[in-house]
Nucleic acid binder design. Structure first.
Lengths: 144, 144
DNA sequence: CTACATCCTCTAGCGACTAGAGGAGCAAGC
DNA sequence: GCTTGCTCCTCTAGTCGCTAGAGGATGTAG
């Protein structure tokens, strides 16, 4: 109703979050239920767009929805300590760094393999060995 | 039957892949159907364990099952032409390098976030602010 | 007033597992 | 031999974070 209200399509365009995804976020309570127009259409304002952009950015950084929920409630209480937000970000950073290290090792092996192939020998395919390396620590699958 | 045969539980322990996940991998054809004991139990040997460890590691690195399927063909056909293996390896290499680049960008942003957060008030929390930053470019979710 | 875009709700599907029901097999102690 | 208790079997259904589609209502431009 206000000049600052957008339909869901416009909100999607402005926030970079797809229409069905916005509805999904509302459904799981990540986004408050939007107000509705006469004809039952969802209406969004600036604040909603900001929240959507926040969610999108956090998802791009690989944060899980539950983590984002926490970050959002933290955002809503600006006088609280920042320590919780810091912890979430740090945990994510560690995951990402682990993954980079693993991928670097894999890249080296693939490079080595391609080089060997160029010189005509196929023989010992160490890519498999690298990946099959059982000395690697057992950990849960790193998310994204 | 051979001395080198393991039950699924033992295979899980040794490979770091959970029992139901092993069965799932067999179901989707990522792992060849295991031979069975008298009492219909799956039996695994060394080669199977290697393959499982390989799959686990590749999944940790974020490869999709389909990519792993391709990667496994490298292992299964060591006599194949160099060109074919080379092509697969090169394609994977490009993928891996892209992924590393993407993760590096992610890490930098996380690092910046975390560094500037001196655990003060949420009001001035860089983590939250960074996520809320709408000047960020629209891009698809950073795949692993 | 018609055409067409956009919206609504609802259900089902995806990948890659994970959890649980309900039952069979097996190894060890009594 | 028998019971206890673990592992195994198959099967179906649930998880997360969406995505796709059906079938229908609403809004807007010519």
């Amino acid at each position: 109703m206000l000049k600052s209200d957008f339909a869901i399509g416009e909100a999607a365009r402005q926030s970079g979050v797809k229409v069905p995804t916005i509805r999904y976020y509302e459904q799981i309570g990540l986004l408050p239920a939007a107000s509705r127009s006469e004809g039952n259409r969802r209406l969004y304002d600036r604040r909603d767009l900001d929240r959507l952009a926040f969610i999108r950015h956090a998802r791009e950084l690989g944060f899980e929805v539950e983590a984002i929920r926490t970050l959002l409630t933290l955002q809503d209480s600006p006088d609280q300590s920042c320590a919780a937000a810091d912890a979430i970000a740090k945990a994510r950073l560690i995951e990402v760094e682990k993954r980079i290290a693993s991928l670097n090792a894999l890249r080296d092996e693939l490079l080595r393999m391609v080089k060997q192939c160029e010189s005509g020998r196929i023989g010992d395919c160490r890519v498999i060995e690298t990946l099959a390396d059982t000395t690697h620590a057992h950990g849960r699958l790193a998310e994204a």
